[in-house]
């Protein structure tokens, strides 16, 4: 489709003016997301963007969509449920590294396991920005911050490894300084049926400027990397010298909404032959029993 034929222009995805600091990587991530949505011509009213708390989690306001600004760390379970209730919606969960890998970390592996057909975009700046400069779960060892005045002694979380450990069905990393690649990754993520995790390195100029680190260490995954090879992907995820970007891994697993839909059909079909105990009482007491065709 040429630009002229398309129903939705980039403008159609714009919400309120972002309130991030000048130079924040999140501007570019937002741009990449809007471009990916425009490329896929997702109708804004059929788009749900769900976030937690943090600088990047303000993103629902900056996109023209149905937004849900959840409490801190809880974007994933709500996003998964939105998709279960209405599989026709394009569902994006978004947030930062603190939201996703500290307070919300408990939900990450479980959402990976359930495999809802949603995209999870983490804007990773390796710092707490909204609360003004505390160490985050992805801050590197040795980093001095307001809460690690001597040094950060903790090993950082490796989000790509965590995703791979639980057989996440789509795993990718992009950087805010390469909008073109990030857009492409987000398009692929949205198109992939299943839980798609995209880690977007997005530096915070105000509290932890990682632009140079991102520039110096990021590298495209080699062309011959086999995205179906989980062990191969793990090797790149564990590399501490290079920050590999691109699609690490992809696998087709039954999605949560496929499973719930399947269960529904199975159960509805059984309603007339061998109903569940409470359905039986319902029928006895005059209730209209739902069937797979009703």
């Amino acid at each position: 489709m040429s630009e002229q034929q398309q129903e939705y222009s980039l403008k159609d995805y714009k919400g309120l003016m972002p309130i991030w600091c000048p130079g924040c990587g999140d501007f570019s991530v937002l741009m990449a997301l809007q471009k990916a949505l425009q490329h896929r011509q997702v109708a804004p009213h059929k788009l749900a963007v769900i976030s937690g708390i943090g600088c990047s989690s303000r993103i629902p306001h900056f996109i023209n969509a149905y937004g849900f600004h959840m409490v801190h760390g809880r974007s994933l379970p709500s996003a998964a449920a939105v998709k279960v209730v209405n599989p026709e919606l394009e569902v994006i969960a978004a947030g930062g590294d603190g939201d996703g890998f500290a307070i919300g970390m408990g939900h990450f592996p479980h959402t990976v396991r359930r495999n809802p057909n949603i995209t999870y975009l983490v804007m990773d700046n390796e710092i707490y920005g909204l609360t003004k400069g505390q160490t985050s779960p992805t801050s590197h060892t040795g980093l001095v911050t307001k809460t690690t005045p001597w040094e950060n002694a903790d090993e950082p979380i490796n989000p790509i490894m965590t995703a791979l450990a639980h057989n996440c069905s789509f795993v990718a990393r992009g950087i805010s300084t390469d909008v073109k690649q990030l857009t492409q990754l987000l398009i692929e993520a949205m198109e992939h049926p299943g839980f798609s995790f995209v880690q977007a390195m997005s530096p915070c100029l105000t509290f932890h400027d990682t632009y140079e680190m991102v520039r110096n260490t990021s590298k495209d995954l080699p062309e011959d990397h086999d995205v179906t090879d989980r062990l191969g992907a793990i090797k790149y995820a564990l590399d501490t010298d290079n920050m590999w970007t691109g699609v690490f891994y992809k696998v087709r697993r039954p999605t949560l909404d496929e499973v719930t839909t399947r269960n529904k059909l199975k159960a509805l079909e059984r309603n007339t032959k061998s109903p569940t105990p409470l359905m039986k009482i319902y029928a006895d007491m005059g209730g209209k029993v739902p069937t797979s065709t009703s």
Partner: peptide, 22 residues
Amino acid sequence: PAWGGSAIQAEDEMSALTHCLG
């Protein structure tokens, strides 16, 4: 499922209520 709905066993109670709110 027999009533046309879906149920999920969550990883904790925060997740349970969060799923519900979504």
